[in-house]
């Protein structure tokens, strides 16, 4: 018994050493790469990208309508629409790489992609790992309710039951700012929608993009509040320290405001899904400027 324990401890020690070794090696280039671009995980500079004639962009391949692959195997969506334009403005071809929420940061840190355009919400934690450019989209909370008893302001919810999914921003936002609204919490999204359909709650709140899309498919329900709470922005990201590329993207986004580029992007990619139910101003950020409400 004790021998087994020693055995296990021994193994744990080895694994921890290995982990420290990997993370130690991994973190050291991060600090050094600001000075030298010869470190193993160095990013490609603007010149490198232009010289190679191709930019590698990490996007989602299964998050319609932001980043997905159509029936012909082509990347499509709001993020891709901008990716294509960015490549065009750089004068290079574009190569898309399918990324997942869990590996977006790693793809940038290891220089396996030059830019991430994968519905990447700006958070302080992420900003320590990667450099965010100016935003091109924003998300806030939305509240969906039956047409018969439409909720159009949070005050209407007082004394009523609001459905939320556990661990979402909606849960934290309402319990902090509206403590007298009764919250009905579920683990999974499907449960929350079923609860709303069954009438177990008066309304349901989560990201506005999500409830807007849902309301379109479910007759008799409308998103009465389309933008509530803290506005999260979505922005392109580059490897930490890749200033040239970052500046190029920032200038590009500012410049594109003159042609109302992201509104056009919305018309092309999001409007077919959201229709007239959504005010583009609730989602689109033009020229990197978020107008706080």
């Amino acid at each position: 018994m004790s021998l087994k324990k020693i055995h296990l401890l021994f193994l744990a020690a080895i694994i921890m050493t290995a982990a420290v070794f990997v993370s130690g090696c991994a973190s050291s280039p991060d600090t050094s790469q600001q000075q030298s671009s010869t470190s193993p995980t160095a990013f490609r500079s603007l010149d490198d990208i232009k010289k190679s004639g191709e930019i590698t962009i990490g996007v989602f391949s299964d998050k319609a309508p932001f980043g997905y692959i159509d029936q012909n195997g082509e990347y499509q969506g709001y993020d891709i629409y901008y990716g294509n334009r960015l490549a065009k403005d750089l004068g290079v071809k574009v190569k898309y790489v399918s990324v997942e929420p869990a590996n977006r940061v790693e793809y940038l840190k290891t220089g396996k992609v030059d830019v991430i355009l994968a519905n990447f919400t700006v958070t302080p934690e992420r900003a320590e790992q990667v450099d965010f450019a100016l935003p091109y989209m924003k998300v806030a909370l939305g509240v969906v309710s039956p047409d018969g008893a439409l909720i159009t302001s949070p005050d209407q919810l007082k004394g009523k039951t609001l459905i939320v999914a556990k661990g979402t921003t909606a849960e934290t936002y309402f319990s902090k700012n509206y403590p007298d609204i009764k919250l009905l919490k579920f683990d999974q999204y499907t449960e929350t929608y079923n609860a709303l359909l069954d009438g177990r709650g008066d309304a349901f709140s989560t990201d506005n993009t999500e409830v807007l899309a849902w309301a379109l498919k479910n007759k008799g329900f409308t998103v009465g509040i389309t933008s509530l709470g803290n506005i999260d922005t979505i922005a392109p990201a580059v490897q930490k320290g890749n200033k040239e590329l970052l500046n190029f993207i920032n200038d590009d986004i500012k410049k594109l405001a003159s042609e109302n580029f992201f509104h056009k992007d919305y018309e092309e990619t999001l409007k077919p899904v959201y229709g007239d139910a959504v005010n583009p101003e609730d989602l689109v950020v033009e020229g990197g400027a978020v107008n706080n409400k």
Binding site: S61, A64, S98, L216
Partner: peptide, 22 residues
């Protein structure tokens, strides 16, 4: 393996499903 960028059958399936979600 999709988590290291290799798109195999299941991921392709999810891509097709999501593209037609609406």
């Amino acid at each position: 393996v999709v988590l290291i960028g290799v798109v195999e059958m299941l991921k392709t399936g999810q891509q097709i499903i999501e593209a037609n979600r609406y």
